[in-house]
């Protein structure tokens, strides 16, 4: 089944968000400075990147709705 460009971007954003949330779960169980570093460095970056990818996906599909529908 073919997926539209928006759906593909949602899948990519979702995968990045999933990675970020999984890292967050692991970092929450650590109480040391390393766990804080993993949270602040990796988890925040992945979740923010996932949200931005999702927003970019919906904005760009709104700008090019025809191209998106043709796919």
């Amino acid at each position: 089944m073919a997926t539209s460009l928006l759906e593909r971007r949602i899948q990519i954003a979702g995968t990045v968000l999933l990675l970020g949330l999984i890292v967050e779960v692991f970092s929450l169980f650590g109480k040391g400075a390393l766990a804080f570093l993993v949270f602040a460095g990796l988890c925040v970056t992945l979740i923010v990147a996932g949200i931005l990818l999702y927003l970019h996906g919906i904005v760009s599909s709104a700008q090019h709705p025809r191209q998106d529908a043709e796919r």
């Binding site: 949602i10 968000l17 967050e24 766990a35 602040a40 988890c43 925040v44 996932g50 949200i51 999702y54």
Partner: peptide, 21 residues
């Protein structure tokens, strides 16, 4: 699911990490 919930998860996690620190 892709915008509101992740921000809430991040905020709650950040608050917890700040307390732990």
């Amino acid at each position: 699911v892709f915008f509101v919930l992740p921000i809430l998860c991040l905020g709650a996690g950040f608050s917890r990490k700040m307390d732990q620190s």
